[in-house]
């Protein structure tokens, strides 16, 4: 949990699915986690394993025909899934804000940067046009924009990718949210800009004490930012624990595979390790464990039924895994 131990957001048994020709694709299947104030929870996995859909489910923005079918998302003692839409809108962008993966397309091309940031301030903080614009300039200065007055009048196409992502960060943080969801915030940026964005998010997190949900497939980013890590595969959590436990002592073959696929400067191997195969079609998952067809250590047991989530360790060194291997070992 976070430094203060206060749980800000609690997701319980979340189920989100999309209808498809082959039946229902369960993009998120029974995902549960808590995130505390000032804590960064990393969610990792390959593309298509349900990370982004989990994030969009939290703010109830899963695109049609997708549907959140079950579970609870508790924030401020209330289940967000039960809230009327009007109340949910008062939380979006205000108490729970999101930074999206693609800064080049996430900003409206026909509105100035200033107008896009200030509309959230006017909506949630009830500020007048002039006050909102003044706050917008402060926010732009805070995310290290030189000449914020001038930049506020510019349009997204006049800014670089890194600058646009900083605008997204300013927009997300302008109402000082309790939860900041970052959906692959650095994926579309080049490496030097990535570092700037990461330090900016860290800086703002420590300033506001927001809980951060960092969704990424970049384990390097996780090792730098996260306090706890969740590894997702085929819509389910397959491993969860403190950053140290998951990254240095992975229990699930999938996590191990992801870690082995990271290029390392201290290892002289000709080719990178890869996890064979692809993420399965979520509408027709393999029998037993969904990772079985790609797992080098699969056994008879993996075919019989899906594994149960096993927890190891205490609260401070919590480690859980969803694998028959761990179950048989324990």
């Amino acid at each position: 949990m976070g430094d203060s131990g206060t749980v800000v957001l609690s997701v319980k048994n979340l189920q989100t699915s999309f209808p498809s020709r082959n039946g229902k694709a369960r993009a998120v299947d029974g995902v549960s986690f808590d995130v505390g104030r000032g804590e960064t929870l990393g969610i990792v996995g390959e593309s298509g394993c349900g990370k982004s859909v989990t994030a969009l489910s939290i703010i109830r923005l899963v695109g049609e025909p997708g549907r959140v079918e079950g579970g609870e998302i508790l924030y401020g003692g209330r289940d967000l899934l039960e809230l009327p839409l009007g109340e949910m809108r008062r939380i979006r962008g205000n108490k729970i804000a999101m930074i999206f993966q693609e800064p080049m397309t996430s900003l409206n091309p026909v509105l100035t940067v200033g107008a896009q940031i200030s509309e959230a301030l006017r909506l949630h903080e009830g500020l007048g046009k002039r006050e909102a614009m003044a706050r917008t300039r402060e926010m732009l200065a805070m995310v290290n924009f030189p000449a914020p007055e001038k930049r506020a009048k510019e349009y997204p196409h006049q800014l670089s990718g890194g600058m646009r992502q900083r605008v997204m960060i300013a927009m997300a943080l302008c109402c000082t949210p309790d939860v900041l969801i970052c959906d692959e915030p650095t994926t579309a940026l080049d490496v030097t800009i990535q570092a700037q964005i990461i330090s900016l998010i860290e800086e703002q997190k420590s300033r506001t004490g927001a809980a951060v949900l960092m969704i990424t497939h970049d384990l390097g980013l996780i090792s730098e930012m996260a306090d706890r890590v969740i590894v997702m595969y085929a819509g389910k959590i397959v491993e969860e624990g403190t950053k140290m436990n998951v990254l240095t002592n992975p229990l699930h073959p999938y996590t191990e595979g992801l870690l082995n696929a990271v290029p390392r400067i201290d290892r002289d191997s000709g080719t990178l390790d890869v996890i064979p195969g692809m993420v399965p079609n979520l509408a027709c998952l393999p029998e037993g464990c969904a990772f079985r067809p790609r797992c080098s250590r699969a056994s008879e047991a993996c075919l019989m039924s899906p594994p149960r989530f096993e927890t190891l360790g205490s609260d401070s060194s919590f480690h859980g895994v969803n694998c028959w291997l761990a179950e048989s070992a324990s």
Binding site: L61, G93, N108
Partner: peptide, 15 residues
């Protein structure tokens, strides 16, 4: 309406 910036607008809490 399928563009990313529309999702951003909704994520801001706009009606």
């Amino acid at each position: 309406i399928s563009q990313d910036y529309i999702r951003t607008a909704r994520a801001k809490g706009l009606a």
